Structure formats: structure tokens, C-alpha cells
Amino acid sequence: MPSWLRLAGPLVLAGLFLGTLVISGEHQFDLGYSTAKAQGDKAVADLREQYATDRAEAAQDNLLEYRQQVTRANQAEERFLGAQDQIATLKQQLSERIAHVSTQYRPAPGAAAVPAPRFVVTCGWLRDYNLALGADLPAPDACRAASGAQETAWPAPGSDAELLESGVRAADILAHARDYGAWALTNLAHLNALLDVHDKETH
């Protein structure tokens, strides 16, 4: 057998072996790549599904919380509107009684009603009444004319002018108390409604 033929046999075998190794390696690479890609795709799909589930749960929780807030706000509004109706009813009842209770009185139980004595409100009393309520109101005409000062000025404390009659009647004071009370009760109803919504949100 020629020597080149003897040498060719192992080379052919080595070539076949190397070819088999290359083909096997490529196959293993392809198999490993496809396995890793499938695992990666599945992990990404699982992650996307988890994110979608988390988003759906968060949206459901947010919707539930929003509905609870709307319910609390509606309940607070109903209570506030009910309070406003009560305040309006009270204001109307007071308006109907002001003239009656400020113009006549009974000197004794069972006695006939007689005209009430004249109710005198001095300029100084009216100024201090307004100050006590935090009302920065100008002096009425009778007090401005008596003081001889600027239009908005009141007679000075302790002056003769502050003891002059202001022209304000008992009915005027009761009407003012009615309006001031309605304002205060409305503010209280607002505050209670806000506190009620806030307390339910924090508990």
C-alpha cells in the first residue's frame, strides 16, 4: 500500500472526526440557543403577565378607594345640605317672630300684652357690640352726625356723643343675630362635613 494512502486514512478519519465535532457543536449551540431563548421568552411573558396582574389589582384597588371617597363625599354633602335646610328653616322662623317679640311684652304672667318700652342702643354700645363680633362696620348716620367726624368714624370712647341714641332698634339687633347665627351655623356645617370626610379617610 502506498505510503500516502497509509497517511490519508488517519487524516480522513481525523477530518471526519473534526467534521462530526463541528456539526455536533453547531447542533449543541443551536439547541442551547433555542433552549435559552425559549426560557427567556417564557420569563419575559411571565413577567409581563405578572405586571398586567399587578396593574389590574392596583386599578381595582384604586377604583374601590375612589368609590369609597365618592360615597363619603356624597354622604357629607347630604348632611351639609340637610344642615343648610335646617338653618334656612330656623332663619325663616326667626324672621317671622322678630317683630312680635321686639315690639310688645307682658308685664306679668297672664297680663295682657302691651307695647314694649323704647329700646335704646347708644352709639358706644353699638360700636362695642360690633367690635365684640369682629365686625368692622361704619357708624350709623345718627352716630356720624353726632361725632362730627369722618363718615366711618365712631364717637370717641367716653365722649358725650357715644351715649347718644344710635337709631338701632331691638328688632335690628335680633335680625343681625339671626343672620350672624345663620352664617356661623353654615360655617360649622362646612367644617363638620370636611372633618367627617377627613376622619373616614384616615381611619
Rank of each mutant, 00 (worst) to 15 (best):
E162T: 05
H100W: 09
V197K: 02
P157L: 00
P107Q: 12
H198E: 09
S34C: 07
H203Y: 09
N187E: 15
T202E: 09
L195C: 06
K42V: 02
A175F: 01
E162Y: 01
G32S: 15
G124W: 00
G19I: 01
E201L: 08
F119A: 13
P155A: 03
V44Q: 12
F29C: 03
V101S: 10
Y33M: 12
W125Y: 15
D179P: 06
D46L: 14
L13W: 10
A36N: 06
P155W: 00
L195D: 14
L64K: 07
P107F: 10
I23S: 15
D136T: 13
G167C: 07
T89R: 14
A108G: 14
E165M: 03
H27N: 10
A161L: 01
E57S: 05
A170E: 07
L164H: 12
L126Y: 05
G19P: 02
R72A: 06
G167L: 08
P2G: 10
S34Q: 15
Y129I: 01
H27V: 03
V168H: 00
Q39C: 05
P109I: 02
K91P: 01
G40T: 11
A108F: 10
A36E: 11
G19M: 06
D30Y: 04
G25T: 08
K42S: 14
H176Y: 11
E151Y: 09
F80S: 03
K91R: 15
T89D: 15
F17V: 12
A170W: 08
A145E: 14
E151C: 04
A59C: 03
T71L: 11
W125M: 15
C123K: 01
Q84H: 04
P2Y: 04
A113K: 14
H190C: 06
Q69D: 08
D85K: 14
Q150F: 04
L191P: 00
Q93L: 09
H203A: 14
P155I: 00
L13I: 08
A45R: 11
